[in-house]
Computed example of a mutant assay.
Amino acid sequence: MLKQKYLLISLFAIILLILSGCTPAKQLMKKAPADAHFSDNPTIFLHGFGGNASSMQPLINAIERAKLGTAVETIHVRANDTLATTGTLTAKANNPLINIVFDDSTNGNPAHNARILRVIIEKLHHQYHFKKFNVVAHSMGNSTLAEYLLNNSNNSNLPTLNKYVAIASISNSFIGGSGSTNASRSPLLADGQPTIKSTIFNHFSKLHTTFPKAAHVLNIFGNLNDGSESDGRVPINSAQALKYLTSRSASYQQQEFTGSNAQHSKLKRNPQVEKTVMHFLFED
Protein backbone atom coordinates (compact mmCIF):
# COMPACT_ATOMS: atom_id res chain seq x y z
CA MET A 1 0.00 0.00 0.00
CA LEU A 2 2.85 2.36 0.93
CA LYS A 3 4.57 1.53 -2.36
CA GLN A 4 1.45 2.45 -4.31
CA LYS A 5 1.20 5.71 -2.37
CA TYR A 6 4.74 6.76 -3.34
CA LEU A 7 4.06 5.74 -6.93
CA LEU A 8 0.99 7.99 -7.05
CA ILE A 9 2.94 10.87 -5.48
CA SER A 10 5.74 10.48 -8.05
CA LEU A 11 3.27 10.37 -10.92
CA PHE A 12 1.49 13.48 -9.61
CA ALA A 13 4.84 15.31 -9.31
CA ILE A 14 5.73 14.51 -12.93
CA ILE A 15 2.34 15.81 -14.12
CA LEU A 16 2.81 19.03 -12.14
CA LEU A 17 6.31 19.49 -13.60
CA ILE A 18 4.98 19.23 -17.14
CA LEU A 19 2.01 21.52 -16.48
CA SER A 20 4.16 24.07 -14.65
CA GLY A 21 6.08 24.88 -17.83
CA CYS A 22 9.47 23.61 -16.64
CA THR A 23 9.36 21.04 -19.39
CA PRO A 24 6.41 21.92 -21.63
CA ALA A 25 4.62 18.93 -23.11
CA LYS A 26 4.57 20.61 -26.52
CA GLN A 27 8.36 20.95 -26.39
CA LEU A 28 8.78 17.29 -25.51
CA MET A 29 6.62 16.28 -28.46
CA LYS A 30 8.01 18.74 -30.99
CA LYS A 31 9.69 17.24 -34.02
CA ALA A 32 11.51 18.65 -37.01
CA PRO A 33 9.35 19.93 -39.89
CA ALA A 34 8.40 17.25 -42.41
CA ASP A 35 10.35 19.01 -45.18
CA ALA A 36 13.57 19.37 -43.14
CA HIS A 37 16.84 18.21 -44.69
CA PHE A 38 19.54 16.58 -42.55
CA SER A 39 23.16 15.92 -43.44
CA ASP A 40 26.68 15.68 -42.06
CA ASN A 41 27.53 19.13 -43.43
CA PRO A 42 28.48 21.41 -40.52
CA THR A 43 27.20 24.97 -40.32
CA ILE A 44 29.87 27.37 -39.10
CA PHE A 45 28.87 30.62 -37.36
CA LEU A 46 31.13 33.69 -37.57
CA HIS A 47 30.45 36.74 -35.40
CA GLY A 48 31.41 40.30 -36.23
CA PHE A 49 33.69 42.98 -34.82
CA GLY A 50 33.55 43.04 -31.03
CA GLY A 51 31.57 39.79 -30.92
CA ASN A 52 31.82 37.02 -28.36
CA ALA A 53 30.48 33.55 -27.59
CA SER A 54 26.97 34.95 -27.12
CA SER A 55 26.79 36.82 -30.43
CA MET A 56 25.57 33.97 -32.64
CA GLN A 57 24.28 31.74 -29.83
CA PRO A 58 20.64 32.95 -29.98
CA LEU A 59 20.46 31.91 -33.64
CA ILE A 60 22.05 28.55 -32.84
CA ASN A 61 19.57 28.09 -29.99
CA ALA A 62 16.66 28.89 -32.32
CA ILE A 63 17.81 26.22 -34.78
CA GLU A 64 18.05 23.68 -31.97
CA ARG A 65 14.59 24.57 -30.64
CA ALA A 66 13.18 24.01 -34.12
CA LYS A 67 14.84 20.56 -34.15
CA LEU A 68 16.70 21.50 -37.34
CA GLY A 69 20.25 21.16 -36.06
CA THR A 70 22.46 20.22 -33.12
CA ALA A 71 25.06 22.46 -31.48
CA VAL A 72 28.13 20.24 -31.29
CA GLU A 73 31.19 22.45 -30.81
CA THR A 74 32.32 25.88 -29.74
CA ILE A 75 35.82 26.73 -30.93
CA HIS A 76 37.53 29.62 -29.15
CA VAL A 77 40.40 31.29 -30.96
CA ARG A 78 42.62 32.61 -28.19
CA ALA A 79 44.54 35.87 -28.50
CA ASN A 80 47.70 33.87 -29.27
CA ASP A 81 45.83 32.02 -32.08
CA THR A 82 45.64 28.70 -30.23
CA LEU A 83 42.31 26.88 -30.34
CA ALA A 84 40.22 25.72 -27.39
CA THR A 85 37.33 23.43 -28.28
CA THR A 86 34.36 22.37 -26.20
CA GLY A 87 32.05 19.65 -27.44
CA THR A 88 32.49 16.97 -30.10
CA LEU A 89 30.81 16.21 -33.40
CA THR A 90 29.76 12.58 -33.01
CA ALA A 91 26.30 11.91 -34.45
CA LYS A 92 25.82 11.65 -38.20
CA ALA A 93 23.32 13.54 -40.35
CA ASN A 94 22.20 15.86 -37.53
CA ASN A 95 23.01 19.23 -39.15
CA PRO A 96 25.91 19.98 -36.77
CA LEU A 97 26.28 23.61 -35.66
CA ILE A 98 29.73 24.99 -34.80
CA ASN A 99 30.22 28.38 -33.14
CA ILE A 100 33.60 29.98 -33.83
CA VAL A 101 34.57 32.65 -31.31
CA PHE A 102 37.52 35.00 -31.74
CA ASP A 103 38.52 36.09 -28.25
CA ASP A 104 40.45 39.01 -29.78
CA SER A 105 37.39 40.18 -31.69
CA THR A 106 38.42 43.81 -32.10
CA ASN A 107 41.58 43.24 -34.10
CA GLY A 108 39.77 44.42 -37.25
CA ASN A 109 41.90 42.13 -39.41
CA PRO A 110 39.77 39.77 -41.54
CA ALA A 111 42.86 38.45 -43.33
CA HIS A 112 44.32 37.26 -40.04
CA ASN A 113 41.01 35.73 -38.98
CA ALA A 114 40.69 34.02 -42.38
CA ARG A 115 44.03 32.27 -41.87
CA ILE A 116 42.75 30.92 -38.56
CA LEU A 117 39.47 29.94 -40.21
CA ARG A 118 41.40 27.82 -42.69
CA VAL A 119 43.20 26.06 -39.82
CA ILE A 120 39.83 25.35 -38.20
CA ILE A 121 38.25 24.03 -41.40
CA GLU A 122 41.27 21.81 -42.07
CA LYS A 123 41.08 20.51 -38.50
CA LEU A 124 37.36 19.77 -38.74
CA HIS A 125 37.76 18.20 -42.17
CA HIS A 126 40.52 15.92 -40.90
CA GLN A 127 38.37 14.86 -37.94
CA TYR A 128 34.99 14.42 -39.61
CA HIS A 129 35.70 14.03 -43.36
CA PHE A 130 32.78 16.17 -44.55
CA LYS A 131 32.80 17.38 -48.16
CA LYS A 132 30.66 20.50 -47.82
CA PHE A 133 30.00 23.13 -45.17
CA ASN A 134 27.64 26.05 -44.58
CA VAL A 135 28.46 29.45 -43.14
CA VAL A 136 26.31 31.99 -41.29
CA ALA A 137 28.24 35.23 -40.82
CA HIS A 138 27.40 38.59 -39.29
CA SER A 139 29.03 41.91 -40.17
CA MET A 140 32.84 41.55 -40.20
CA GLY A 141 32.42 37.77 -40.10
CA ASN A 142 31.47 38.09 -43.76
CA SER A 143 34.81 39.76 -44.46
CA THR A 144 36.56 36.88 -42.71
CA LEU A 145 34.81 34.40 -45.01
CA ALA A 146 35.51 36.57 -48.07
CA GLU A 147 39.22 36.59 -47.23
CA TYR A 148 39.15 32.83 -46.75
CA LEU A 149 37.50 32.34 -50.14
CA LEU A 150 39.94 34.69 -51.89
CA ASN A 151 42.74 32.30 -50.99
CA ASN A 152 41.04 28.91 -50.81
CA SER A 153 37.93 28.74 -53.00
CA ASN A 154 39.69 26.63 -55.64
CA ASN A 155 41.59 24.36 -53.25
CA SER A 156 40.39 20.83 -54.01
CA ASN A 157 41.89 19.55 -50.76
CA LEU A 158 39.38 21.52 -48.71
CA PRO A 159 35.62 21.02 -48.36
CA THR A 160 33.48 23.26 -50.54
CA LEU A 161 31.10 26.01 -49.49
CA ASN A 162 27.53 24.76 -49.79
CA LYS A 163 25.20 27.44 -48.36
CA TYR A 164 26.17 30.90 -47.19
CA VAL A 165 24.01 33.28 -45.14
CA ALA A 166 25.38 36.82 -45.07
CA ILE A 167 23.87 39.04 -42.37
CA ALA A 168 24.74 42.76 -42.54
CA SER A 169 27.63 42.20 -44.93
CA ILE A 170 30.03 45.11 -45.34
CA SER A 171 30.61 44.63 -49.07
CA ASN A 172 31.43 48.22 -50.01
CA SER A 173 31.46 50.54 -47.00
CA PHE A 174 30.23 51.09 -43.48
CA ILE A 175 29.05 54.18 -41.66
CA GLY A 176 31.92 55.81 -39.82
CA GLY A 177 34.59 54.07 -41.86
CA SER A 178 37.46 56.03 -43.32
CA GLY A 179 36.48 57.61 -46.64
CA SER A 180 33.17 55.76 -46.71
CA THR A 181 30.72 58.68 -46.97
CA ASN A 182 30.48 58.81 -50.76
CA ALA A 183 30.65 55.04 -51.14
CA SER A 184 27.85 54.58 -48.62
CA ARG A 185 25.56 56.66 -50.85
CA SER A 186 26.71 54.98 -54.03
CA PRO A 187 23.89 53.71 -56.28
CA LEU A 188 24.31 50.24 -57.71
CA LEU A 189 24.44 49.11 -61.30
CA ALA A 190 22.14 46.33 -62.52
CA ASP A 191 24.77 43.69 -61.78
CA GLY A 192 25.13 44.88 -58.19
CA GLN A 193 28.38 46.75 -58.72
CA PRO A 194 28.57 50.07 -56.84
CA THR A 195 29.20 53.16 -58.95
CA ILE A 196 31.57 54.43 -56.25
CA LYS A 197 33.86 51.63 -55.13
CA SER A 198 35.52 51.59 -51.74
CA THR A 199 38.86 50.03 -50.90
CA ILE A 200 36.94 47.18 -49.30
CA PHE A 201 34.97 46.45 -52.48
CA ASN A 202 38.05 46.67 -54.72
CA HIS A 203 39.88 44.24 -52.44
CA PHE A 204 37.11 41.65 -52.60
CA SER A 205 36.20 42.21 -56.27
CA LYS A 206 38.23 39.15 -57.32
CA LEU A 207 35.44 37.04 -55.84
CA HIS A 208 33.34 38.04 -58.83
CA THR A 209 35.32 35.52 -60.88
CA THR A 210 36.40 33.05 -58.17
CA PHE A 211 33.41 32.61 -55.85
CA PRO A 212 32.45 28.90 -55.56
CA LYS A 213 30.01 28.02 -58.35
CA ALA A 214 28.16 25.38 -56.34
CA ALA A 215 27.39 27.65 -53.38
CA HIS A 216 23.94 29.09 -52.65
CA VAL A 217 23.78 32.57 -51.14
CA LEU A 218 21.22 34.31 -48.93
CA ASN A 219 21.97 38.00 -48.33
CA ILE A 220 20.13 39.53 -45.34
CA PHE A 221 20.32 43.24 -44.53
CA GLY A 222 18.51 45.77 -42.40
CA ASN A 223 16.75 49.08 -42.97
CA LEU A 224 15.86 51.17 -39.92
CA ASN A 225 13.41 53.26 -41.98
CA ASP A 226 14.86 56.37 -40.37
CA GLY A 227 16.17 58.00 -43.53
CA SER A 228 19.68 56.59 -43.16
CA GLU A 229 19.06 53.80 -45.72
CA SER A 230 21.03 51.52 -43.42
CA ASP A 231 20.90 49.29 -40.36
CA GLY A 232 22.70 52.04 -38.49
CA ARG A 233 26.09 50.65 -39.42
CA VAL A 234 25.94 49.10 -42.89
CA PRO A 235 24.28 51.00 -45.77
CA ILE A 236 21.75 49.00 -47.79
CA ASN A 237 23.76 49.62 -50.96
CA SER A 238 26.87 48.23 -49.33
CA ALA A 239 25.14 45.03 -48.25
CA GLN A 240 23.53 44.64 -51.68
CA ALA A 241 26.92 44.88 -53.39
CA LEU A 242 27.41 41.27 -52.28
CA LYS A 243 25.32 40.31 -55.33
CA TYR A 244 28.19 41.29 -57.63
CA LEU A 245 30.85 39.60 -55.52
CA THR A 246 28.93 36.30 -55.44
CA SER A 247 27.52 36.40 -58.98
CA ARG A 248 29.12 33.05 -59.88
CA SER A 249 27.12 31.27 -57.19
CA ALA A 250 24.56 28.58 -58.01
CA SER A 251 21.84 30.85 -56.63
CA TYR A 252 21.55 34.26 -55.00
CA GLN A 253 18.68 35.74 -53.05
CA GLN A 254 18.43 38.75 -50.80
CA GLN A 255 15.96 39.89 -48.18
CA GLU A 256 15.55 43.22 -46.46
CA PHE A 257 14.23 43.49 -42.90
CA THR A 258 12.88 46.77 -41.59
CA GLY A 259 12.20 48.53 -38.31
CA SER A 260 13.98 48.66 -34.98
CA ASN A 261 14.74 44.92 -34.95
CA ALA A 262 16.65 45.40 -38.20
CA GLN A 263 19.33 47.39 -36.37
CA HIS A 264 22.84 46.10 -37.09
CA SER A 265 23.41 44.15 -33.88
CA LYS A 266 19.78 43.13 -33.40
CA LEU A 267 19.42 41.80 -36.92
CA LYS A 268 20.99 38.41 -36.16
CA ARG A 269 18.56 37.98 -33.21
CA ASN A 270 15.46 39.05 -35.14
CA PRO A 271 12.91 36.18 -34.95
CA GLN A 272 11.94 36.69 -38.60
CA VAL A 273 15.59 36.54 -39.62
CA GLU A 274 15.96 33.32 -37.63
CA LYS A 275 13.05 31.73 -39.51
CA THR A 276 14.42 32.88 -42.87
CA VAL A 277 17.87 31.49 -42.09
CA MET A 278 16.50 28.14 -40.93
CA HIS A 279 14.32 27.74 -44.01
CA PHE A 280 17.21 28.54 -46.35
CA LEU A 281 19.68 26.22 -44.64
CA PHE A 282 17.56 23.23 -43.76
CA GLU A 283 14.16 23.37 -45.48
CA ASP A 284 14.83 24.92 -48.88
Rank of each mutant, 00 (worst) to 15 (best):
A114F: 05
I44M: 06
S251Y: 01
Y148C: 05
L7F: 14
V72Y: 03
D284Y: 09
K123P: 07
G108E: 09
I44P: 02
S139K: 02
S171Y: 10
H37S: 12
S230Y: 06
S198D: 04
G222F: 08
L189G: 07
S156N: 14
Q127I: 08
K31A: 14
T195H: 05
H76T: 13
Y128V: 05
N202T: 13
G232Q: 11
R269Q: 15
G51R: 00
A190Y: 02
G50I: 05
S186P: 08
K5P: 10
N270G: 06
G69W: 06
N172H: 01
D35Y: 06
F204W: 14
G222L: 05
N142Y: 03
I63A: 12
I100F: 05
K268S: 12
T246P: 01
L224I: 00
N107F: 00
A183I: 03
P212E: 03
K132E: 15
F280Y: 02
H264T: 08
G108A: 10
H76L: 14
S39H: 00
A114H: 06
A84C: 09
L188R: 00
I170Y: 10
Q254L: 07
K213W: 03
H112G: 02
I236A: 02
P159R: 01
S143Y: 07
N155S: 07
N219L: 02
V273L: 01
I167M: 05
P212A: 07
L281G: 08
A53S: 14
P96N: 07
N94D: 15
G141E: 06
R115W: 10
L242N: 11
E229I: 12
L89H: 14
L245R: 02
A215R: 04
E73S: 00
Y244W: 11
E73F: 00
P194G: 08
L97Q: 01
S39R: 00
H76N: 13
N80G: 05
Y252I: 01
M140A: 08
P33C: 09
K266D: 14
K243I: 03
N152P: 03
L149F: 04
T82Y: 04
